[in-house]
Nucleic acid binder design. Sequence first.
DNA 1: ATGTCC
Length: 479
Amino acid sequence: MFERIGDAEWQIAPSGAMLVPAVVFADREMVDELQRDEAGSEWSALRQLRNVACLPGIVGRALALPDVHPGYGFPIGGVAAFDVKDGVVVVGGVGFDINCGVRLLSIPLSADELGERAGLADALFAAVPAGLGSKGSLRMTVSEIDRLLREGAAFAVGRGLGLPEDLPVIEESGCVSGADPETVSERAKQRQFRQVGTLGSGNHYLEVQRVDELFDPAAASVYGLDAGQAVISVHTGSRALGHQIGQDYLKIMGEAGRRYGLPLPERELACAPVDSDEGRRYLSAVACGANCAFANRQVIAHLVRGVLADRYGVSPSSVRTVYDIGHNNAKRETHDVDGVRRELIVHRKGSTRALGPGAEDVPAAYRSVGHPILVGGTMGTSSYVMRGTPDGMRRAFGSGVHGAGRALSRKKAAKKYWGEDVLSSLHASGIELRAHSLRGVAEEAPGAYKDVERVVAAAEDAGINRRVARLRPLVVIKG
DNA sequence: ATGTCC
């Protein structure tokens, strides 16, 4: 059924209600597994990808990246672009944790200079609120959250929680335009205003890492990354706000889709025309969620800077934001499609933007190589810094992988692993883990994920992303 | 992902 159309690129021709081909960037074994899942399971990323290919106004191809796995309606590790005139906006194409993403901070110390790791782990665990329902340190009223939703990371910086130089190295400078807080429900705001600056739970984490190996020393140098250096990754999103926006708009879009008479392949793919009141309002709400996530990571970066200043006497400005990028988004972008410039809404769910060399929206300092893509590993395996390529701009709407990708559901992982065992095996390999929930640790066991090494290798073989550096975990903080 | 069901 799959036709191999390139190195690590496989295509399914349109059939039935599919309007465009479905394409998977992956190695042969991953593709075989996707086909086995489709044949043997209700819960299939490939079936979801075919459904996405049926949505009105989809442009080019429905894409899955090597970290693909099933999500709500739309695969995680999926990318789909829709024409702004006759396309749709899909709630499931963004996911519940709007603009969940990673911020990478570089520390002016080598990993060796960090010294004793247990104390560092304790200090970070104490400083960064985490876990389900945790409360943040940014004091604000529910009415002030409207400003945060409009301004994003700059709101936090304006409160003294960060540095002005952080902003240019955040995707969209930490503020997506078109964010009208009126499109976000009061309930969403009420759930969030105490939670800004919290890590959350699930796959969210804070990690201290060592730059373990450079694959592209020239690009690493542009990003200011040296072998042996210590860095910190913060993986979190828009918390309860994004989740509530998702719930609210699933309901709104479910009704709107029927009213507009949209032919939907699957109930979970609730959507509305881009060019409709509901579509425009959802895109505004997504921009608000994105800004909330940028602000959230900004506040956490500030807390981290405080810990590092206390322990090592390093100044806040010497702890530099390398980049901050989301992986659950729907945004208006211009792309060349078969030689024609087109205005599109690009949905990336469990996929990052990956603008290659020379792209206008890449920060000036990084423009020669493209912006960094931050690929999260698991607690026990490496993360990667990658970058986009001209080929990825043409063939993947400038998109990148976001992480290892789950291999087992949370439930299956919790059944298979014990939190204590995971803790001790990580400890044995020199990784200090602090977590609020042992069940969460079991759900997040490295064995519950795909092999991140194979994921990044497949993205590189496909020609859409390039490895820049590998980051090895030393300290892990989990919700 | 998520005050894991208003």
